[in-house]
């Protein structure tokens, strides 16, 4: 069965990059959200198998979105990969404390991202 993935990032170029990386891995259906608000409505209606979340977004902060996902029954247990640059170290720690499964620092190699996604997708 196709795994559903949600990519949340405010950068169009980053979204394309992440989506391309995931799609080359195999049978994934990827949804993209260009910010926290758009992600909220997607998350309220669909259950995802993996969520990739950028921390720094202008409309809603990634940590707050993470808090939302963790308190919403629909995606409570979905593995989450946080994507951000290494400078926001405290944010990364808090994200992992909130139950993010993995953290990928920008710039990342597609192989690194692919490894995380494959592992979490159980394939």
């Amino acid at each position: 069965m196709r795994k559903r993935v949600l990519v949340v990032d405010d950068s169009a170029a980053m979204r394309t990059l992440v989506t391309t990386t995931i799609e080359t891995l195999g049978d994934f259906a990827v949804d993209e959200a260009k910010g926290g608000v758009e992600a909220l409505s997607l998350l309220n209606h669909a259950a995802y198998d993996i969520i990739l979340l950028d921390i720094n977004m202008p409309d809603l902060h990634g940590l707050e979105l993470l808090g939302f996902i963790r308190s919403n029954p629909r995606n409570k247990a979905t593995p989450i990969i946080l994507i951000s640059t290494e400078s926001t170290e405290r944010d990364r720690e808090k994200g992992l404390a909130l139950g993010a499964s993995a953290y990928v620092a920008k710039p990342f190699s597609p192989e690194e991202l692919a490894a995380h996604v494959s592992r979490l997708a159980g394939s």
Binding site: P58, T85, S87, K106
Partner: peptide, 30 residues
């Protein structure tokens, strides 16, 4: 945030020179 985005973007596209300056810039702005 803009500096942060630029750094991330440059990093992903292998634009090390832009990324390098953006990295230091972001640190100051942080």
């Amino acid at each position: 945030r803009h500096a942060h985005s630029l750094k991330g973007l440059a990093g992903m596209f292998g634009q090390t020179e832009v990324g390098g300056i953006a990295h230091h810039f972001e640190n100051v702005l942080d």
